[in-house]
Nucleic acid binder design. Structure first.
Length: 570
RNA sequence: GCCCCCGUGGCGCAAUUAGGACAGCGCACCUGGCUUCGAACCAGGGGGUUGCAGGUUCGAGUCCUGCCGGGGGUACCA
């Protein structure tokens, strides 16, 4: 397998070698060379392609002006084919310029690698689990879950590209009170549809049409069969059936978003077996002194926490034993399941910011279990506000009033949802405008990127019609136009973007990159005629067709990393 | 009260390996560009003391403190 090089890191290595050489030659005093050499892409053309501010930091150590250090260092940086210029620049930067001839040669290299372009080995095969969505299976997915889904899936894709062995997992909360609540809700609707008398007890119900729909389905399939059944028995059956029913819908909706899970882990499993994982964990925590019994409940107590947290509710408050363990108790089991039993190197959780208060508890639980808390990564995203134009749409599952993911997919399709949900960092609240998402205009950025891809496809079709052989690899040395080179520079940056996005767990970088790449293709297209009708330009046309094909592959790669379609026509 | 996130041109957001050289992009607004490859595109223009006040640093949108404003959390709910 071929991996892509990250230019930034290559250049950092050059600087390191330069520092060593300069020391050896006596041009610089001997000092400990920093482990991390900073190198950043330049923001201004005059500064070349990459720059390093190392010398600024060394000024203090060496008691010399940064620019003097830079000037002493520059001549000792080894010459390599891909760098044409190394320059010390005030106040003390070292600037690197990529060689344009070498740059042009990268076009066929990228084309050759195809969608493997951008693959890295920084993950070194480390096993990472990304657990996301994990919405309670008590109703259809909402738009809030869509952000979770999009973020988690893109995160997984980016990590896989960076060389991690990634598994996508959905955690099914199918144990305890909410499962029963769903069963009870369906049961009550079922009875009322058949005009049968309700049971003597009354509990909380989920409102919402989907409950009625499921009850109707049972009526159609089974008639009055459950009317005579013992209510407790019926509720149990309705609950199990309902959860499966909802999950099937969830899976289908997510599939339409092009999201597929490797595993579906059921909370219920933690409470089965003899002894169950739940019993094992409880015994373990108790033995290690993390359990406090008080007020009839069982509490988790840890020095990192300001206050104890309930693991098992008291029988006085919750009569049904199955409903007594809290979600924190399940989280404890799940930690063990992920990081000990299945032994992932790390577990990434994608959570809504409304759960941020749980972070310290889960971290403390990991510690209590002897798991390095650094292996547990909680990624929080701020919530989604939904609006139609300037009118806010309030959502809540308990009120039964919400916009489902399915409705949204029906309205706009998966691509705008994926792109728009990914454009912002997880740290900011997201305003999702239903009107805008539907709008097929240039206010809607998703089309800009996809259009670049279809535009290339259109050019290639045009070329084929004119009899151009699509497989001819033109001479890259003919690619000398600034628009051509800028496009190649941007394609060359994909590995860095994947590196950054993976390391910082920030897949939103992909959207910005996709727009930039698309923009540079559009500029190239505008400035450089690709398929020329003048026979004298045949060689150049071949070279540009190659460049266009390379750009098409990279665009497709980025779109696919974001889980989007790379269409041939629009 | 305490905890978390955010505050960047009219609006929506970026800003890179967690501090680097002149803060970018889209929308909106104004102007120009299709008789050869897809104008869902391109080019140009106006618009900013990065919420406020301090601090650390050679250097701060980025780090620290305080304040102001918005959102979320603070259950024997999940």
């Amino acid at each position: 397998m071929t991996y892509t090089k990250i230019m930034r890191r290559e250049i950092a290595d050059l600087v390191r070698e330069g520092l060593q050489a300069a020391q050896a030659a006596g041009a610089l005093d001997v000092f400990d060379i920093p482990k991390e050499i900073p190198v950043t892409p330049s923001r201004h053309e005059a500064h070349g392609d990459y720059g390093s501010p190392v010398c600024m930091g060394l000024a203090r150590v060496l008691h010399r002006a940064p620019i003097q250090i830079a000037e002493a260092l520059a001549p000792h940086i080894p010459a390599v084919e891909y760098i044409s210029g190394i320059e010390a620049a005030p106040p003390g930067f070292i600037n690197f310029t990529l060689d344009e001839g070498w740059l042009a040669q990268q076009a066929p290299v990228i084309l050759e690698m195809g969608e493997a372009w951008g693959n890295l080995d920084v993950g070194a095969g480390e096993r990472v689990q990304v657990e996301f969505v994990s919405a309670n299976p008590t109703g259809p997915l909402t738009i809030g879950s869509a952000r979770n889904a999009v973020l988690g899936d893109a995160m997984a894709a980016v990590l896989a590209a960076a060389g991690y062995a990634v598994e996508r997992e959905y955690y099914v909360n199918d144990h305890g009170s909410k499962a029963r609540k769903l069963g009870y809700s369906i049961y009550m609707r079922y009875l009322s549809l058949l005009d049968a008398p309700p049971p003597s007890f009354e509990e909380e119900k989920y409102p919402g049409e989907y409950v009625t729909a499921m009850a109707q389905e049972l009526v159609d399939a089974s008639g009055r069969r459950f009317v005579e059944m013992d209510p407790e028995q019926a509720i149990r059956e309705f609950s199990a059936w309902g959860i499966e029913r909802v999950l099937a819908g969830v899976e289908k909706d997510l599939a339409r978003m092009r999201i597929h899970f490797d595993t579906w882990r059921h909370e219920r499993d933690f409470y089965q077996g003899d002894p169950s994982l739940y019993e094992q964990m409880m015994a373990r925590l108790r033995e290690d002194g993390y359990i406090v019994d008080k007020e009839g409940a069982v509490w988790f107590s840890h020095p990192d926490l300001d206050q104890d947290a309930v693991l098992v509710r008291s029988a006085e408050v919750i009569p049904n034993p199955e409903d007594r363990p809290t979600y924190l108790m399940s989280d404890v089991c799940y930690l063990w399941d992920k990081l000990v039993v299945r032994d992932f190197d790390s577990a990434i959780y994608i959570w809504g910011a409304d759960h941020h208060g749980d972070v310290p508890r889960v971290k403390a639980a990991a510690k209590a279990l002897g798991i390095d808390p650094a292996r547990v990564e909680l990624i929080l995203y701020q919530l989604v506000t939904l609006r139609r134009g300037d009118q806010e749409v309030r959502m809540s599952k308990s009120s039964g009033e919400f916009v489902t993911l399915r409705e949204l997919i029906d309205e706009v399709g998966p691509d705008p949802i994926r792109f728009m949900m990914l454009t912002r960092t997880a740290d900011v609240t997201l305003d999702f405008d239903l009107d805008l998402a539907v709008e097929e205009s240039d206010r809607n950025p998703v089309y800009y990127v996809q259009y670049a891809h279809t535009r290339i496809a259109g050019v290639l079709r045009h070329a084929a019609e004119r009899g151009w052989d699509p497989d001819v690899i033109g001479d890259p040395a003919l690619l000398t136009h600034p628009s051509e080179l800028d496009l190649i520079r941007k394609m060359l940056a994909l590995p860095e973007i994947i590196d950054v996005a993976a390391e910082h767990r920030a897949p939103h970088h992909l959207t910005a990159y996709a727009r930039e790449l698309a923009a540079l293709f559009h500029i190239f297209y505008h400035n450089c005629r690709i398929v020329s009708s003048d026979p004298a330009d045949a060689d150049l046309s071949h070279a540009r067709l190659m460049l266009a094909r390379a750009a098409k592959t990279v665009l497709a790669r980025v779109l696919h990393l974001m889980g989007m379609d790379a269409p041939e026509t629009m």
